[in-house]
């Protein structure tokens, strides 16, 4: 009997479950700790003086609020522009890669799209800085947007391409047989079916742009700050409670957007 149960249980290893829970604790503990301490009433991060939202009030009305508001506005504007442009480019590229047959430059195009994922981020940052320096483009708001557009393309491309591969081509073939033009098929059939992939690609690109520190830090002009560069500057002088409140807010934005992206791609019932 004992032998039989061992055989049935050939998949489970004792201890693996415990390691999995340890893994989740490791992944979430630092984030939870920062979230909890952002509600600390104390002026110092060393002690816990009870629950309070006053660091959140400080973020919006305190002495540093103007700086952080400007940084937040920059971050969101850059992320919105970069995610929109990179999603459009990625959607077209995915159509060209997945709905346009095999061709000579296909592997090369694919390599080009995934290039920003292969290269260490600091190398991308150095190369982009050198590029703007060589062409004499003054560093500022625009340089951040250009750099983010390029960096976000692969992140937008992956869910879009995955979705497109899952769409049954016979629907488009049927429309073509019924004398729809290719353009009509694209806008009336392919794009609507692609929507979950496009939304999910857009959200991921948005988060990647919103979160980027290294590339932004290299290509930004003097005086232009995004939330991550402002947070980094502040952290260099020590972790203060208002930083924890900002971090918690930014963290929540990322978690909410990833969750939306997850559930949108879950609506994938057609395939």
């Amino acid at each position: 009997m004992a032998g039989l149960s061992v055989k049935l249980d050939v998949r489970s290893y004792s201890g693996f479950k415990a390691v999995t829970f340890l893994c989740l604790i490791i992944l979430y503990a630092p984030l939870l700790v920062v979230t909890i301490y952002s509600f600390n009433a104390s002026n110092s991060i060393a002690s816990w003086d009870g629950f309070s939202v006053h660091w959140y009030v400080d973020v919006f009305t305190g002495p540093e609020s103007a700086k952080f508001k400007r940084a937040a506005w920059n971050s969101f504007a850059i992320a919105l522009i970069a995610a929109t442009v990179s999603t459009m480019i990625a959607t077209l590229a995915a159509t060209g890669m997945i709905r346009a047959g095999k061709f000579k430059l296909r592997t090369l195009s694919f390599g080009l799209i995934s290039l920003p994922l292969m290269v260490p981020e600091i190398v991308t940052a150095v190369a982009t800085l050198i590029f703007f320096n060589a062409i004499g483009f003054e560093r500022g708001f625009a340089t951040i947007i250009f750099a983010h557009i390029a960096f976000c393309i692969p992140f937008a491309y992956l869910p879009i391409a995955a979705r497109m591969q899952g769409i049954d081509e016979t629907v488009e073939q049927a429309a073509l047989d019924l004398y729809a033009t290719r353009q009509q098929v694209f806008t009336r059939i392919l794009l609507p079916l692609m929507t979950p992939g496009i939304i999910s690609g857009f959200l991921l690109a948005f988060i990647v742009s919103l979160d980027d520190f290294i590339i932004t830090n290299f290509v930004k002009g003097a005086g232009v700050e995004t939330l991550p560069t402002a947070i980094f500057g502040a952290v260099k002088q020590g972790i203060k409670p208002n930083i924890m409140a900002i971090s918690t807010l930014l963290l929540s934005v990322s978690v909410v957007m990833v969750t939306i992206s997850y559930f949108v791609s879950k609506t994938d019932k057609t395939t």
Binding site: F213, I243, S254
Partner: peptide, 12 residues
């Protein structure tokens, strides 16, 4: 956690 800002995770 991967999608949470790397800077924030490191500070945490």
């Amino acid at each position: 956690p991967y999608w949470v800002n790397l800077l924030i995770r490191t500070v945490s």
